[in-house]
Write a protein that binds this DNA or RNA. Structure first.
Lengths: 196, 196
DNA sequence: TATATTAGCGATTCATTAATCGCTTTTGAG
DNA sequence: CTCAAAAGCGATTAATGAATCGCTAATATA
């Protein structure tokens, strides 16, 4: 036989994300995934019961990776403002290196077909949100940010900004430097945060 | 024979948008569209050469309708701030009544498959953007908004906010009142605009 | 080393769906 | 009123893609 199934499962997730990045989630067929992994189409089903299961696992994986990449900023020694700024930067770098993520975010498979995928994404978003809210709260308490701000609301709008940016990036075929958007985005967003 | 083709073409566009709203763009099959119009699946092709053509026309149509709905705010007699606020409100009302629009915006058909659809959407966005930039410019010149603002940049972020909001709305199955988001969104956004 | 287990494959099945075709029905222009 | 053009339909085609099946080959373990 070939490699042990745990290795293969991980490879299949990578193949699925790679295929989704290039072709879109809908066109990331089991054949396309198998090609990237270097195995036959039918072999996919030795490791996952269905195609949906693959993408459920893929979202799980990429969500966990993103949260892991941002973890340092939720608890470092810098000021809240610096950490928030750098977290946004780190997030855009992460997405730059994981183009499958916006493709999943803006696929109708996510928005319609699969309640499981949707729940996974919503869970990751809630998780992310609650940590960033904490960070904003710290900033408010430290007097760095406007005391009048509602942290939850503020973070919601930050997420909208980032999602809107990713939407644009995906729509324009990834043809601008996403990381370079971090600085101007921060300039804009921090106008809101400014303590009077 | 049945109705004249121009009537049918319009009906098919409505059916396509309705199907896309309910089922997503990918699952809005020619059969689903035909069902809504009340004609046979094959009859669709008497009026449009291909499925893609239908959605190209649908985007064209919905884009034009949206711009028409917003037209009053680009040139009314009120202050720029009031018009901008009301334009955002009107836009959210429009999208509430045209759920096919976010479904199209967040479909992989748009992001991947069809360069034509993509170009149509980009054109509508540019059109929209240039008018809103004008409006912001007026506000700046009238001293209502901060003179330091870059109008183009500012409008880009407004669009990101709105797109992010629509993304959220679609992801949460349209289960919150989109129109009600206009006021808090304005509260947030207008903090940016404030002349010092 | 013997053997049960698991990974892998090619061929096949089954479902879906856009698009075509031949034929029928309706309509409107002359 | 006539008849050509247009609208409509059911059946069919062709392509695609997820999932199944029977078989083979590699591996772990006893």
């Amino acid at each position: 036989m070939g490699k042990p199934t745990e290795t293969r499962r991980a490879e299949i997730i990578l193949g699925a994300l790679s295929a989704a990045a290039d072709l879109g989630l809908g066109a990331a067929t089991t054949q396309a995934i198998a090609d990237r992994v270097g195995i036959g189409q039918s072999t996919i089903f030795r490791h996952y019961k269905s195609r949906d299961e693959i993408f459920a696992a893929a979202i799980e994986s990429i969500g966990a990776n993103m949260l892991r990449a941002l973890e340092p900023y939720f608890s470092g020694g810098d000021s809240a403002a610096v950490r928030l700024k750098e977290m946004i930067h780190a997030q855009l770098i992460f997405v730059s290196n994981n183009r499958g993520l916006p493709r999943i975010l803006f696929s109708d498979s996510l928005h319609i077909d699969s309640p499981i995928l949707k729940q996974n994404v919503q869970r990751v978003m809630r998780n992310y949100s609650s940590r960033v809210v904490q960070l904003v709260q710290e900033g408010i308490e430290a007097g760095e940010f406007d005391k009048q701000l509602d942290p939850t609301e503020t973070v919601r709008y930050l997420m909208m900004l980032i999602q809107g940016l990713l939407m644009r990036w995906s729509l324009f075929d990834f043809n601008f430097d996403l990381e370079a958007e971090a600085a101007p985005l921060w300039d804009f967003f921090s106008r809101i945060l400014k303590a009077e």
